[in-house]
């Protein structure tokens, strides 16, 4: 069970959250004007990155807010969590426990 730092509430166990897939996939302003291929891409295609991945979580059993996170999918350590609307932060390429398990204190 991961330990996830909600940007509004702080570190909480994974059971309080729901995963919500890749982040920064904006719904087109005018979907009707979008061609078939890019619309299909928007609906279904995902980066599914191996390594740091910008993704969305919702603090479902907490504040209820959606937020973004960058997690290294090769280690499951978080590099950052940030609020919706904030730009994707610069993070190192690899995450280790000391930097990012969130809430476990500084080493």
């Amino acid at each position: 069970m991961l330990l996830i730092t909600c940007p509004y509430c702080g570190p909480r166990p994974e059971l309080e959250f729901r995963y919500a897939g890749e982040a920064h996939i904006a719904r087109p302003e005018d979907p009707s004007g979008v061609e078939a291929d890019p619309w299909g891409e928007f609906l279904y295609n995902r980066t599914n990155a191996r390594g740091p991945y910008a993704e969305r979580w919702r603090h479902f059993h907490g504040c209820g807010r959606f937020f973004n996170a960058i997690r290294d999918t090769t280690t499951d350590f978080f590099l950052a969590t940030y609020k919706v609307g904030e730009p994707r932060p610069d993070v190192p390429a690899r995450a280790v426990a000391s930097a990012s398990t969130g809430g476990a204190g500084e080493r």
Partner: peptide, 13 residues
């Protein structure tokens, strides 16, 4: 509700 919150919070804040 989750579907609604998703659009409200992330697409149309």
């Amino acid at each position: 509700l989750n579907h609604m919150e998703d659009y409200l919070q992330t697409e149309w804040p």
